[in-house]
Amino acid sequence: MVRLPLTPAEVERGQRLGALLRRARGERPMLATALDAGVSPETLRKIESGRVATPAFPTIAAITAVLGLSLDDVWAEISRPVEIEPADAGERLAS
């Protein structure tokens, strides 16, 4: 199965999700959080760092449940519209 490259908006959403989960976890150990959620610590680390921008829904549901987060609140936080300019937009304006 060929996976299409992520869009800049998907990457940004994954970074927001990771930051949100890190903040919610606070001082709680990553290992304990991951084990309580039934995911590997490596998976949680990758999600929190934004390396996995589109984690599976059951994974996020399990992590948010352990952290006491509402899925509705998480979605509202990470799905805000993002304005991303093309990489060469500045170059076009300068010429």
Results as ranks from 00 to 15, higher is better:
residue 1 M to I: 02
residue 1 M to A: 10
residue 2 V to F: 00
residue 2 V to L: 14
residue 3 R to M: 08
residue 3 R to L: 12
residue 3 R to C: 03
residue 4 L to R: 14
residue 5 P to H: 04
residue 5 P to A: 06
residue 5 P to D: 05
residue 6 L to K: 13
residue 6 L to W: 00
residue 6 L to E: 12
residue 7 T to P: 10
residue 7 T to C: 08
residue 7 T to K: 08
residue 8 P to W: 09
residue 9 A to E: 15
residue 9 A to W: 11
residue 10 E to A: 15
residue 11 V to R: 15
residue 11 V to F: 07
residue 11 V to Y: 03
residue 12 E to D: 11
residue 12 E to S: 13
residue 12 E to W: 07
residue 14 G to Y: 04
residue 15 Q to A: 11
residue 15 Q to N: 10
residue 15 Q to P: 04
residue 16 R to E: 01
residue 17 L to M: 14
residue 18 G to I: 09
residue 18 G to E: 04
residue 19 A to C: 03
residue 20 L to Q: 08
residue 21 L to E: 10
residue 21 L to T: 07
residue 21 L to M: 06
residue 22 R to I: 03
residue 22 R to H: 13
residue 22 R to Q: 13
residue 23 R to K: 13
residue 23 R to Y: 02
residue 24 A to K: 12
residue 24 A to E: 08
residue 26 G to F: 14
residue 27 E to T: 11
residue 29 P to F: 02
residue 29 P to N: 02
residue 29 P to I: 02
residue 29 P to Y: 00
residue 30 M to K: 06
residue 30 M to V: 10
residue 31 L to S: 04
residue 31 L to C: 00
residue 31 L to D: 06
residue 31 L to T: 07
residue 32 A to P: 01
residue 33 T to D: 04
residue 33 T to F: 07
residue 33 T to I: 06
residue 33 T to S: 08
residue 34 A to E: 09
residue 34 A to T: 08
residue 35 L to H: 13
residue 35 L to E: 15
residue 38 G to S: 11
residue 38 G to C: 11
residue 39 V to Y: 09
residue 40 S to K: 12
residue 40 S to V: 01
residue 41 P to C: 04
residue 41 P to M: 06
residue 42 E to Y: 01
residue 43 T to P: 04
residue 43 T to G: 02
residue 43 T to S: 12
residue 44 L to M: 08
residue 45 R to P: 03
residue 45 R to T: 05
residue 46 K to C: 06
residue 46 K to L: 10
residue 46 K to H: 12
residue 47 I to F: 01
residue 47 I to R: 02
residue 47 I to N: 03
residue 48 E to S: 04
residue 48 E to L: 02
residue 49 S to N: 12
residue 49 S to L: 13
residue 49 S to Y: 00
residue 50 G to P: 09
residue 50 G to T: 02
residue 51 R to P: 00
residue 51 R to F: 10
residue 51 R to E: 14
residue 52 V to Q: 10
residue 52 V to S: 09
residue 52 V to M: 02
residue 54 T to Q: 13
residue 55 P to T: 01
residue 55 P to W: 02
residue 55 P to Y: 03
residue 56 A to N: 12
residue 56 A to M: 12
residue 56 A to K: 14
residue 57 F to H: 10
residue 58 P to N: 08
residue 58 P to I: 05
residue 59 T to P: 00
residue 60 I to Q: 12
residue 61 A to R: 15
residue 62 A to V: 01
residue 62 A to Q: 10
residue 63 I to L: 14
residue 63 I to T: 00
residue 63 I to D: 05
residue 63 I to K: 05
residue 65 A to E: 13
residue 66 V to E: 07
residue 66 V to I: 11
residue 70 S to Q: 04
residue 70 S to V: 05
residue 70 S to T: 10
residue 70 S to H: 09
residue 72 D to H: 11
residue 74 V to S: 07
residue 75 W to N: 06
residue 75 W to C: 07
residue 77 E to S: 15
residue 77 E to F: 09
residue 78 I to C: 06
residue 79 S to V: 02
residue 82 V to M: 10
residue 84 I to F: 05
residue 85 E to V: 09
residue 85 E to P: 00
residue 86 P to T: 10
residue 87 A to Y: 00
residue 87 A to F: 00
residue 88 D to F: 13
residue 89 A to I: 04
residue 89 A to G: 03
residue 90 G to Y: 03
residue 90 G to F: 01
residue 91 E to F: 01
residue 91 E to H: 06
residue 91 E to V: 04
residue 91 E to I: 01
residue 91 E to Q: 12
residue 92 R to H: 09
residue 92 R to S: 03
residue 92 R to G: 05
residue 93 L to P: 02
residue 94 A to Q: 11
residue 95 S to P: 07
